[in-house]
Design a protein around this nucleic acid. Structure first.
Lengths: 148, 148
DNA sequence: ATGGTTGCAAATTGTTTGCACAGTA
DNA sequence: TACTGTGCAAACAATTTGCAACCAT
């Protein structure tokens, strides 16, 4: 259902406009909120409005180029996710790096759920500290602002 | 950490006022949003304001009498949860009934998480249809409005 | 030309907070 | 009496939407 996209097609849906190209270029390699992305975008081109970023993120998510991976405080967290298939995300609370993790629910929780309860969907997100951020000597790890 | 409370102490913290007693009485035996609760409360006593309900829910949650069990659309879902220990919730999308389910994460996902990633917390909520709502002949099952 | 895209501002929604007053302990 | 709780309205933050001008196709 999700297509692997090349860097030439930022998000295989909709038109390619300078704004969207700029927004796609500003997408970091970690989890981020739309607000954070808008801030980066604003540094590249102050004329691009917040609403445009929101709409672009929606389009990117619709096409599968971006995935909603969780939420920090009151805002949604997004990240690039080229992985296919059903899986979950492990988000480092220090630097925002996102790792994939297999789904333990299908086998365990479904069976563990109350008898008669048919699980139709579930949400699972792991929060923690990644290996890089755990290394004491690694102070240069935390790229920019951290989610949560 | 969580105390088992008797029905005499709606939420073992703070004062007992007519409003809070009313709000506690309006808490349904299923998952609900603060908005839904406020509506029920309003039927019992139209003079009670929305802010008061929010503050009461916050107090109830603080004392452990209520637990945040998930979220529907943009709003938080709460429910009474007397269970102790670490566990998760299975919420019926038809009637809102909440069931407890053991946590499959500690054992599975942590081990499955990328090496070096130290999981500090996680969120897991199962959505589905409960046994009662699955029974075709059971139309009287869905109590009132349903979450989600 | 045609319909998706953008900016801006205004509107929504869920939730919180400031303040003066009322009521519990 | 000393606070905590209440009501109401205003404040807030995240996100969405209406609309007119624009521009990629």
């Amino acid at each position: 259902m999700r297509t692997i996209l090349t860097s030439d097609e930022p998000y295989g849906a909709g038109r390619s406009t300078p704004q969207r190209r700029c927004i796609a270029a500003a997408v970091p390699d970690r989890a981020f909120t739309v607000g954070e992305l808008a801030e980066s975008v604003s540094r590249l081109d102050p004329a691009i409005g917040l609403a445009t970023v929101y709409r672009a993120v929606a389009a990117m998510e619709r096409s599968g180029w971006l995935t909603r991976v969780g939420e920090a405080d009151g805002s949604a967290l997004y990240a690039r996710c080229t992985e296919g298939g059903h899986h979950h995300h492990a988000i480092c609370t220090e630097c925002g790096r996102v790792a994939h993790t297999p789904c333990p629910v299908a086998s365990e929780a479904s069976a563990a759920a109350p008898s008669g309860f048919r699980v139709t969907s579930h949400d699972l997100t792991l929060y923690g500290v990644c290996e890089t951020c755990a290394s004491p000597a690694d102070s240069a790890a935390s790229a920019s602002g951290d989610p949560r």
